[in-house]
């Protein structure tokens, strides 16, 4: 159980979370109530919904890889009305703020969807701008600072709840995208979505996913994402939520030290549906062991020796 001595609470803009652990979009739904008390989570993040109905991609939609998995689910969706009528009621009474994840084809559709989802029961909206932008030949919004800025500005003009921008790691300069989202008014960043990947079965010569390419998640991507959390946290003042490859409390701490204020857990729940509760308990134990009174102190507190490179060079010159 969580030690009451340690303050696990964190703040994401105006939103107070009782602990920094929440699910990653697409890796959580009300069915997990069969395996854990959802009320113990810092927040609940639901699967991305789209304004239009979508059937999703062909199967197989998942494939195992080394230390991770590929997915090409394709965001099947029954639309926003269905979400509000049929999905949201499952979470009534769960004592954790609900964050609705949204995907859309254009900046305007994004804004309209976020407006429609600014309803009681939704505490914040996560704009999954890692999805394809129809007006840019299907390139993800978050692959361009300009498209990121336009989508988030448009959303901020219409939404009545805080907006988290979920970035894609499939970019050369993530800090530039992070700044564009912050400039456009994003209340927080989620870093990040899956890395684009592909796997082929050498025996059958077929791709392992029906959709050929898909998103890589799990521990395989953690070092890449931790680096991006570090870069984003240094580039912006808004909170960064770390998401990628977290299986344990130690992995979550890694994200926090790199600069995250909170973390999202995705693939780990597929290995154990109650994995997030173990991570929450593990974070409390970590804080106790390290004499950390408030977990918020950990954010960005990676111990980097600023003089190391200089001393290294000096030493090299002396001995040379």
């Amino acid at each position: 159980m969580v030690d009451p001595q340690v303050d696990l609470g964190v703040k994401i803009g105006s939103l107070m979370l009782k602990n920094p652990v929440m699910p990653a979009s697409g890796c959580f739904a009300h069915e997990y109530a069969q395996a854990m008390d959802l009320g113990r989570l810092g927040a609940l993040v639901t699967k991305s919904v789209t304004p239009k109905r979508r059937i999703g991609n062909p199967v197989p939609r998942v494939a195992e890889t080394d230390a991770g998995m590929l997915n090409s689910i394709g965001i099947p969706s029954s639309g926003l009305l269905y979400y509000v009528d049929k999905i949201l009621p499952h979470y009534v009474g769960v004592p954790a703020p609900l964050v609705a994840s949204v995907s859309a084809d254009t900046a305007e559709e994004f804004a309209a969807a976020c407006e429609a989802l600014s309803v009681p029961g939704v505490s914040a909206i996560e704009a999954n701008i890692s999805c394809p932008n129809i007006e840019a030949d299907g390139r993800a919004f978050a692959m361009s600072p300009k498209d990121t800025h336009r989508a988030i500005s448009e959303i901020k003009r219409h939404a009545r709840v805080p907006i988290w921008a979920k970035l894609t790691p499939n970019v050369a300069d993530i800090a530039e995208i992070a700044r564009a989202a912050e400039d456009a008014g994003a209340d927080a960043l989620v870093v990040a979505n899956t890395l684009l990947g592909m796997a082929i079965d050498p025996e059958t010569r077929k791709p392992k996913l029906g959709n050929v390419m898909g998103g890589l998640s799990g521990p395989a991507i953690r070092p890449v994402i931790v680096r991006m959390v570090f870069q984003c946290a240094r580039a912006v003042r808004i909170p960064v939520i770390g998401c990628g490859g977290i299986l344990s409390a130690g992995h979550a701490v890694e994200h926090l030290l790199a600069g995250a204020t909170a973390v999202q857990v995705g693939t780990a729940s597929f290995l154990d549906p109650a994995a997030m509760l173990g991570i929450i308990d593990g974070l409390a134990a970590y804080c106790e062991r390290h004499g950390v009174a408030r977990i918020a102190e950990l954010t960005g507190s990676v111990r980097i020796d600023p003089g190391l490179t200089d001393r290294w060079l000096r030493l090299a010159q002396q001995s040379g």
């Binding site: 890796c27 959580f28 197989p60 997915n71 099947p76």
Partner: peptide, 14 residues
Amino acid sequence: QQMACAMGVCLSCV
């Protein structure tokens, strides 16, 4: 069907 979460969450095994 190929599945990941096995609890109806990830929508892979349709």
